[in-house]
């Protein structure tokens, strides 16, 4: 990864996204999908966002791009807050998204050329038809598709190739920043490496910045410069990718890292996993204080009272845990 510029490209401050859920006649309750998340991403950097299903990682990605209207909090891009409709439209020329499922995220009635050309149409990024066509072919070339694929439909392609189409579409507006929401989890193992390498190459070639959302920790570690771990709508730990793998500090991160199945029999046999009891609580009934305390082997009464502060314990390593000092 290239040299990192120290002014963040994207900054998120105390972002909250609450959905109103009907719980009775005319009665709603807030589901706190994202509950006070702050982070920043530098230009050319990849921030990995990991966590289990329901922890709010996808919602973070979507709220960032204003696909959901944030309940509260600030999103700053290049130092400027994204707020008005005009801001959002302008922002979407610089920030795009690659979705998880290459089967449902491509319109089956559109040809590949039209799928990739749609963002060009929306943002009126060409003068002549010829220019549009050239741009589409250039994008297809970027992601390793042939020009003869342009007039075909999405169903004629395999999963890996479909994901390439989705990536070409995300690149159409010449973005600086891409939210990658589980872009390889629907793909076969042998194809995943192809797509991951492509993300790497495109970053080098086009100077892209990624927010890489995934649950496969081996892949996130491979592609990310820094990693943030989410649990029940909050970021509980954030650090350099290697640091968080070798020295996780939050009890949840520790359990998560130890639960990754390692493809090596000797390591797997010797590996001591930290088994967590129980399941993730529903975000409708989030526990008081620290969200992890109901499954945490080290929880005390203090953990039930207040949410621990998200503080920097060593350079660039942030943790939200009351007992981080005594446990490590």
């Amino acid at each position: 990864m290239s040299e990192l510029n120290k002014t963040p490209l994207l900054e998120v401050r105390d972002l909250k996204e609450h959905f109103d859920i009907n719980v009775g006649f005319l009665k709603t309750r807030p589901l706190k999908a994202v509950d006070g998340v702050s982070f920043s991403i530098n230009r050319g950097e990849t921030l990995g966002l990991v966590g289990e299903s329901g922890c709010g990682k996808t919602t973070v990605g979507r709220t960032l791009l204003h696909l959901y209207k944030p309940t509260s909090g600030e999103i700053l891009y290049d130092g400027k807050e994204i707020k008005t409709k005009a801001d959002i439209l302008e922002f979407r020329k610089k920030a795009t998204m690659v979705f998880q499922d290459p089967y449902s995220s491509l319109n089956p009635r559109m040809t590949v050329a039209d799928i990739i050309g749609e963002p060009l149409d929306i943002h009126k990024l060409y003068e002549t038809k010829e220019e549009r066509r050239e741009r589409i072919l250039e994008l297809m070339d970027h992601v390793g598709l042939n020009s003869e694929h342009a007039s075909r439909y999405a169903h004629e392609f395999s999963g890996g190739q479909r994901q390439r189409i989705g990536i070409a579409r995300a690149l159409a507006v010449n973005p600086e920043f891409i939210v990658c929401d589980e872009p390889v989890s629907a793909l076969d193992v042998s194809i995943q490496a192809q797509v991951i390498n492509m993300f790497d190459d495109l970053q080098d070639k086009l100077g892209l910045t990624y927010l890489f959302i995934a649950h496969d920790l081996l892949i996130v570690r491979h592609i990310s410069d820094r990693i943030a771990v989410m649990y029940l709508g909050k970021i509980v730990e954030m650090a350099d990718a290697d640091e968080i793998y070798s020295h996780p500090l939050h009890p949840y991160s520790k359990a998560l890292m130890s639960a990754v199945p390692v493809p090596d029999p000797n390591t797997a046999r010797a590996n001591r996993r930290i088994a967590l009891e129980g399941d993730i609580p529903s975000p409708l009934n989030a526990p008081s204080g620290c969200p992890f305390r109901t499954r945490c082997p080290h929880a005390t009464e203090a953990c039930a009272e207040a949410m621990p502060e998200f503080k920097e314990v060593s350079s660039g390593h942030f943790v939200a845990c009351h007992r981080v000092g005594e446990l490590n």
């Binding site: 395999s158 193992v189 194809i191 490496a193 892949i219 491979h222 493809p263």
Partner: peptide, 24 residues
């Protein structure tokens, strides 16, 4: 061999993965 090579490991950080080319 290709399958085992294509998975990211401790050693592969910062390096390119070695994918199996082509499609199933």
């Amino acid at each position: 061999k290709g399958l085992l090579r294509s998975i990211p490991t401790d050693q592969s950080n910062g390096q390119k993965l070695v994918p199996i080319t082509g499609t199933p």
